[in-house]
Amino acid sequence: MDDQIEKMIQEQEPMAETMPNVITALSSLLQRVSETNDDLSRPLWEHQRISAFSALTKPSISIRSYMERIFKYANCSDSCYIVAYIYLDRFIQKQPFVPIDSFNVHRLIITSVLVSAKFMDDMCYNNAYYAKIGGITTEEMNLLELDFLFGIGFQLNVTLSTYNNYCSSLQREMVMRNMYSPLLEPSFLTLKSLQISLYDEDSLSIHQNKQLTTAV
């Protein structure tokens, strides 16, 4: 099974040269948040037992590269990353003793995207495939998914206004990023398109019903 999954990953299309703006913005935001919390650092030994999401050492892969890897192989919709961002925010609000830092951010990212893809997309890969993408075992992926769902109280539904508010937050992140990196083009087409077109009344009701099914 592992060999089949590895072959599926290797056969995916090459990654586009330009990541969607939602990936760039979310990577930048999570990088800033994790570095800020690192500066408030707890002793290293505390990371060994603070949560299932905490690694013993900081992963060598950057947040940006990790999200690019997920984008390349998971094939989930751009809107999944917005919803994953919302789920992450819900998690840290409900679990204040597990702040996002460099020790847990990668596991939180892969788990939130997995949960979001299952809720948002009609088709998505299974946990074993996501575990391969994320560089963890299937057993760990299963455990993280369960911990994450309990961590957000199984609150999976996202309203249109909430979704648009988080799109606006990522737009502001792109503005800040472009201010400090003037060579970047300040393009917000992806985020604006998502903000306008994600939901209509029919699709919103479908996702509400899907939440009830998932919770059962």
Rank of each mutant, 00 (worst) to 15 (best):
I5V: 15
E6R: 14
E6C: 07
K7D: 10
K7P: 04
K7S: 11
M8D: 12
M8Q: 15
I9P: 02
E11I: 07
N21H: 04
I23K: 06
A25M: 02
L26C: 03
S27C: 03
L30W: 07
Q31F: 03
Q31A: 08
S34D: 01
S34K: 01
T36I: 08
N37V: 00
D39T: 11
P43H: 04
W45E: 13
E46D: 08
H47A: 03
Q48Y: 14
Q48C: 09
Q48H: 12
R49A: 09
I50T: 15
S51T: 08
S51K: 04
A52M: 10
A52N: 12
F53K: 02
F53R: 07
S54F: 07
L56R: 14
K58F: 02
P59A: 05
P59G: 08
S60K: 12
S62G: 14
S62H: 08
I63N: 05
I63V: 15
E68I: 07
F71E: 15
F71P: 03
K72T: 08
K72M: 04
Y73G: 00
N75K: 15
N75I: 03
S79G: 11
I82S: 08
Y85Q: 12
Y87E: 04
R90Q: 05
I92Y: 01
K94N: 11
P96T: 05
F97S: 12
F103K: 12
N104L: 00
V105P: 04
H106Y: 00
S112T: 08
S112Y: 05
V115L: 05
K118I: 11
F119S: 02
D121F: 00
M123K: 14
Y125K: 11
N126K: 14
N127H: 10
A131S: 11
I133P: 07
G134D: 01
I136H: 08
T137K: 11
T138A: 12
E140D: 07
E140I: 03
M141G: 11
M141V: 06
N142Y: 12
L143F: 11
E145K: 11
L146N: 11
F150L: 14
G151Y: 02
G151Q: 05
I152H: 02
G153E: 01
F154V: 03
N157D: 09
V158M: 07
L160G: 07
L160W: 10
S161G: 06
S161L: 13
Y163T: 01
N165Y: 09
Y166K: 03
Y166V: 01
S168Y: 10
S168R: 14
L170S: 01
Q171S: 05
Q171Y: 02
M174I: 02
V175Q: 14
M176W: 07
R177N: 09
S181N: 15
S181E: 08
L183T: 08
P186G: 03
L191C: 00
S193D: 13
Q195M: 13
I196P: 01
L198V: 09
D200L: 02
E201R: 11
D202V: 10
D202H: 09
S203R: 13
Q208A: 09
K210N: 05
L212W: 00
T213L: 10
T213F: 08
T214C: 09
A215Y: 06
V216T: 09
